[in-house]
């Protein structure tokens, strides 16, 4: 079970956690959001491997975020663990229900239908004046099993919390990718009919992938809501989904690590562009994406895989 990749992953997450103590608070908060978004991207990678590009992942992201915000506001729930599980669960259920329809479609039809679903939620939220319509509403800072930090301590607590959730998700999804269900993603993309002939229901497999991706997006949304302290209907708008697809293209679908690398690079580049080129930050992001597509068509994640693959070449191949 303890493969080399898992060990490296664990060390990297631990390192990220420790480095957090030496970083200024603004960077910690930036990284927290980047890691929370990485979970949504991880879900997109699962679908991407099966050839599916949803333009409506914001539906689940927003469901998770609003679940947290509503529970905190109306039910008085403030424990981060309860909020997180509730957010993931609600998004998972939404994904399960929409999955009955979405799992039957492919390509552009799938993309458009998923977009439509997320825009339905957007429309409903905008029309709900009691939830502040487009202005949204605030989320009070969460507690962690009775521990109620403030200020910078809260920032660190959230950072660690997000890192732990990310590490667990990365491990689970890593296992899933190696399982039969996970490994069948590429065959589904290449030739669905052949997979059916193996006696496997492609629709059910994709339905499962949708639920996993939806739950991850919900967890990401729940974490984002706690970190930002505010939710609004824009979380369900198609540009939010588009943003996640952007990061997925940047990251590439090669590995679990890609989601985290892509999301971190994206947040840092975006923030840098905001600070240095306030009028041209979109262009900067566009150029970065274009350069990635031109020079690293398999995404930033492929840098790691290349490095790993090249290493054994330098040694003589052992023959026995």
């Amino acid at each position: 079970m303890l493969s080399r990749a898992n060990l490296i992953g664990a060390v990297l997450f631990l390192a990220a956690g420790i480095i957090g103590f030496f970083l200024p608070p603004w960077l910690v908060s930036l990284l927290t959001i980047a890691f929370a978004n990485a979970l949504v991207v991880l879900g997109l990678i699962i679908l991407w491997r099966a050839g599916l590009v949803p333009f409506g992942q914001a539906l689940y992201y927003c469901s998770g975020a609003y679940t947290v915000a509503l529970l905190a506001r109306w039910a008085g729930v403030s424990d981060a663990f309860v909020l997180l599980i509730a957010g993931g669960l609600v998004a998972g259920i939404v994904a399960f229900l929409t999955g009955f329809l979405l799992a039957r479609y492919r390509e552009i039809f799938f993309a458009m239908l998923s977009l439509a679903m997320s825009m339905i939620l957007y429309g409903v939220l905008v029309k709900t004046e009691t939830l502040g319509s487009t202005d949204g509403f605030g989320v009070d800072p969460p507690h962690f099993l009775g521990y109620a930090p403030h200020g910078d301590a809260l920032g660190f607590a959230l950072y660690w919390f997000v890192l732990v959730v990310c590490a667990i998700s990365a491990l689970v999804i890593g296992v899933y990718f190696k399982s039969v269900a996970g490994a069948l993603a590429v065959p589904i993309r290449d030739n669905e009919i052949r997979v059916e002939f193996l006696g496997i229901s492609v629709t059910r497999l994709i339905h499962m992938k949708l639920v996993i991706a939806g739950t991850l997006a919900g967890v990401g949304g729940a974490l984002a809501a706690m970190t930002i302290g505010h939710v609004d209907p824009n979380m369900s708008y198609w540009t939010t989904s588009g943003g996640f697809v952007f990061v997925t293209i940047l990251a590439g679908a090669g590995s679990v690590a890609a989601a985290f690398v892509g999301s971190l690079v994206f947040e840092i580049v975006r923030s840098f562009a905001f600070a240095v080129l306030p009028g041209f930050w979109q262009m900067t992001l566009g150029i970065v994406l274009l350069l990635t597509i031109l020079f690293l068509p398999e995404g930033l994640g492929s840098l790691a895989t290349r490095f790993r693959r090249r290493k054994p070449d330098t040694k003589p191949v052992a023959t026995s």
Partner: peptide, 14 residues
């Protein structure tokens, strides 16, 4: 997004 706006706010201050 609100996330960007809040991040950038923190960046300005901190």
């Amino acid at each position: 997004s609100a996330a960007n706006v809040v991040s950038e706010y923190r960046n300005l201050v901190q």
